[in-house]
Write a protein that binds this DNA or RNA. Structure first.
Lengths: 209, 209
DNA sequence: GCCAGACTAGACTGTCCAGTATGATGACGT
DNA sequence: ACGTCATCATACTGGACAGTCTAGTCTGGC
């Protein structure tokens, strides 16, 4: 993201990070147009000029922030995921889905999603990247997971298609509610577990031979 | 929305409608903050003052536009819906879902959805209304439809829960793709039909006794 | 003919804000 | 001691834009 280039870039990382943090908050809170650079400067305890030295423009800062957040979120979701051994498939799918859903419905990620969706017109690339690093990546990993299960006869169907159904069975209701009804509409732990259990049941009813 | 009030309101409906049309286009295109009132005035072939006479402020105009669009969209979805007689349940569910999905994925509605989601922070009420008139209303009608089916032994489960699962089985994948990947990501007719058929199959596998 | 009310073009006010310019401070290496 | 480089505070420029104001036009009813 930062210009590949000529400069030896020993710029103070501390300030850089402070700007990133402040910009993240402000952009998530007020959107792209609603955000003002003076506020980011003062919130990060840095002069406006410094903001412009580190990031060349409001647009560049926005792209950098959103890009890095999507990357980080994607990585978190797919980090430290347990392996499926010979254990109970249903239980494993539940654990997997609960974990995934909990991360995706964190307020910060919900706000990122809203921000990006609202800016599809202005920044279509960002939305594409978010889709690829979010849902698409999850679906790809599920596909890889389902492939051997199909071969072992535990699932019946096209792995990629099953992955997509599974993903949205788990995510759709909570995510879409949260998008519109606000962060407070995210299910509490009990409900989340019940929701996931039922999603997994439906999935297996449709795809277990 | 317009002030309940004193005035006999015989204002030229033609201009009013022209403003509404122009405002709809511009807001959907550029978002709330990105929209400028001079443009709306010129696009509707009306003077700026007239815009302010008909709608008191940018905010009021926005709320009016979005509110009426959500209402209209909701009404369209639930208008002229065929009844389920004694025919084939699976075929009926497919027809129902195809119809619903086609309407919801129209570009104008997708853009409305993006707009509203992006403005959740500034206008939380609008998003709530969109949720109620959109997904919630669909779910309620499905609930009413499933209730007797359950009593006839054709479905097994809580009608409201089944309605929510059915709704998102049908909507989630296309809608979420379209939100982020743009209007061009909406499935063509063939794909849409295949998608719906499979969604219905999954639903019945999970909920038909 | 005249009044009222809707409308018009366009100027104007006040504010906000991205981005730049200026001139100074302090740290660090040579 | 000196240059360099990041940083600072603050002022400024230029443009955008919500909302108001002015002064005048057009139309239909009486």
């Amino acid at each position: 993201m930062a210009e590949a280039g000529a400069r030896p870039w020993a710029r103070s990382d501390e300030k850089h990070q402070a700007i990133v943090r402040a910009a993240r908050e402000v952009f998530l809170d007020k959107g792209y147009l609603g955000t003002n650079m003076d506020l980011i400067a003062s919130r990060s305890g840095v002069s406006k000029q410094t903001v412009y030295t580190h990031f060349g423009s409001k647009e560049a800062l926005f792209v950098e922030i959103v890009g890095s957040m999507t990357g980080a979120a994607g990585d978190r979701v797919h980090h430290d995921r347990p392996e499926l051994g010979d254990g109970d498939l249903e239980a494993y799918l539940r654990a997997f889905a609960e974990r995934q859903l909990r991360i995706v419905t964190e307020p910060e990620l919900l706000r990122l999603r809203r921000l990006v969706i609202g800016e599809v017109g202005r920044f279509p690339e960002l939305a594409k990247v978010l889709y690829e690093r979010g849902p698409q990546r999850a679906i790809d990993e599920l596909t890889a997971m389902f492939e051997p299960l199909r071969e072992r006869g535990l699932l019946a169907g096209d792995p990629a298609a099953m992955a997509e159904w599974f993903n949205w069975l788990v995510m759709a209701a909570p995510l879409n509610r949260a998008m519109m009804l606000g962060d407070a509409a995210v299910p509490a732990d009990d409900d989340l577990r019940r929701h996931v259990a039922e999603a997994v049941r439906i999935f297996l009813a449709a795809f277990a031979p």
